[in-house]
Amino acid sequence: MMALKVNGRDHQVDADPDTPLLYVLRDDLALNAAKFGCGLGQCGACTVIVDNKAVLSCVTPLLLVEGKQVTTLEGLGTVAAPAPIQRAFMEEQAAQCGYCIAGMMMRAQALLMRNPKPSDAQIRAELEPHLCRCGTHMRILRAVHRAARLMDTADASDRSVR
């Protein structure tokens, strides 16, 4: 059994220490947002936040995150009460198939927590590890800019992950 804190809740997970965090999130905790894209750390679809930093969950074994704070897209907000980053992606309609989007959003969230007013070049550089095949990139960039503005006006508590 491994102890894991995900989206503010403590879990005891019956998984081997070498299990990638991605499988624990999806399989043991029934969370959807982190996606299997390559399992190799090449595409970014599995990105979650661990202790305020964006992490590729498909290549992060459980033992490295034991006791750390893991946040997934589910932990940011809901359809009824979306976090600024979620509102921004909805308002910009920043998805086609959407499979890559959760990972993009988590890295963008980590960036905005570190740097509330990133330049366009900084956003692009930050998102370089992420692939989108539908070509939704223009909207993703707009959505991250919008999220920065929304966070700026929102309650400061929205900027932290729960």
Binding site: A30, L73, P82, Q86, M90, A95, I101, A102
Partner: peptide
């Protein structure tokens, strides 16, 4: 009208949106 897509809210909040998410 540019009606917002019905599938996007689930996709940006971690809802079950794909066959990969079926349990």
């Amino acid at each position: 009208q540019p009606v917002p897509r019905v599938d996007i809210p689930a996709k940006v909040t971690g809802g079950a949106a794909y066959v990969q998410d079926m349990r």
